[in-house]
Simulated scan of single mutants.
Amino acid sequence: MANRKFSLILLSHDLSKKVEFTFTRAKAKALLAGLVASFLLFNGVTGFLATRFVGDSDKAQLEAENQALREQLANFDTKIKSVEQKLSTLAETDNMLRLMADLPLLPADVRKVGVGGTVEILPPGPVVPEAQELNDILNKLDREIELQKTSFREIHSKLDQNAKLLEHLPTLRPCDTGYYSSGFGVRRDPFTKKATHHDGLDISAPRGTPVMSTAAGTVIYAGRYYNYGQFIVVDHGGGYQTAYGHLHKILVRKGQKVGKGTVIGQVGSTGRSTAPHLHYEVRVNGVAVNPMDYVFEDTDNFPGFAVETDATESHEHDHSEEVDG
């Protein structure tokens, strides 16, 4: 059995040729071991090369993805800086508007919109520092935007209140034209020549000159009233009233709503008056106050405002030019 041999016979397709190989048992084992070793070596080399190639390909792909992410982060950083600059501009505008609305400025500490606690912002798992930082910045920007929106809503509400208040404050001149002939305060009465207190402002103007309500309100009196002649009183709410005397015509009725600047009558000389003029009063909680304290328009170009004088001062105007309120 030790010298047993193995034969390997190869025949051609048409059986006309034959090749025979004879192997001893030892040679057959050696040949078989060589074939197995060659197969294993081939598979090992092939696998290594394949792994090396795939690994290089994956690495190149990861590098490309990382580069793209870096570029995106740089782009985000640029956009974030732009948003921060716009928010800074909005904060400056906010400060200006709050001053206009008579509101206190937001403190610097409030504008930092700080937060506390240990709330986890990112999902569980490995934390990328750049992603964590980006989330922190975006959340802070979101809080700043919400703060600014809240502030703008407050400003809008306050300005709306101020606009309504201004609409009902007597800040207009009651006549577009005319001559301030007598101011508020102590003066010499044109009839008695004695020192008396004048509760309003006299504006000399041609008969028929339009007279406007100096603020929005409701007419509470429209008719003849003693020395005031044809007389109108408008209630503006909040304790404010205005009165218009010596009118030639009354163009409104009691209970009528009037807007700021609405023509309510015409300049005349009815009642205790020496010439056509308007007697105009502003009353606060029933007390007459100086109307000039409420006229916002520039009065420098409105001629002839009579500065208040003491009763002892001489009156240089001819009596026919004096008017009485």
Rank of each mutant, 00 (worst) to 15 (best):
A30T: 15
A30P: 00
L31V: 12
L31C: 06
G34E: 13
G34C: 05
L35Q: 10
A37T: 15
A37K: 14
S38N: 14
S38K: 10
F39T: 10
F39Y: 15
F42G: 06
N43W: 15
G44W: 08
G44Q: 09
G44F: 09
F48H: 07
L49S: 08
T51S: 08
R52H: 10
F53V: 00
V54H: 13
V54W: 15
G55L: 09
G55M: 07
D56I: 13
S57M: 12
D58A: 12
K59V: 06
Q61A: 08
Q61E: 05
L62K: 13
L62G: 04
L62S: 12
A64R: 11
A64E: 10
N66A: 12
Q67D: 07
Q67L: 08
L69V: 09
R70M: 11
R70C: 02
R70D: 10
Q72I: 15
Q72A: 15
Q72H: 15
Q72M: 13
L73K: 05
N75L: 11
N75D: 13
N75V: 06
D77V: 00
T78A: 14
K79F: 07
I80H: 02
K81R: 14
K81V: 07
K81I: 11
S82Q: 11
V83N: 01
Q85C: 03
L87C: 02
L87R: 03
T89G: 05
E92I: 04
T93W: 13
D94G: 03
D94I: 08
N95D: 15
L97S: 11
R98K: 04
L99I: 04
M100T: 14
M100G: 04
M100L: 14
A101T: 02
D102M: 05
D102W: 04
L105D: 06
L105I: 05
L106D: 02
L106P: 07
A108R: 14
A108I: 04
A108N: 09
A108V: 09
D109H: 02
V110C: 01
V110E: 09
R111T: 00
R111K: 13
G114A: 05
G114F: 11
V115I: 06
G116E: 05
G116V: 07
T118R: 06
V119N: 06
V119K: 09
V119Y: 06
P123Y: 04
P123I: 10
P123F: 05
P124R: 03
P124K: 05
G125S: 07
P126D: 11
P126M: 09
V127I: 15
V128R: 10
V128H: 12
V128L: 12
P129T: 07
E130H: 01
A131T: 10
A131F: 04
Q132G: 01
E133I: 00
E133Y: 08
L134M: 13
N135C: 03
D136T: 05
D136R: 14
D136I: 09
L138G: 01
L138T: 04
K140R: 13
L141C: 00
D142I: 01
R143I: 00
R143S: 07
E144P: 03
I145F: 01
L147A: 04
L147E: 06
L147G: 05
K149N: 12
K149C: 03
T150C: 01
T150Y: 02
T150A: 12
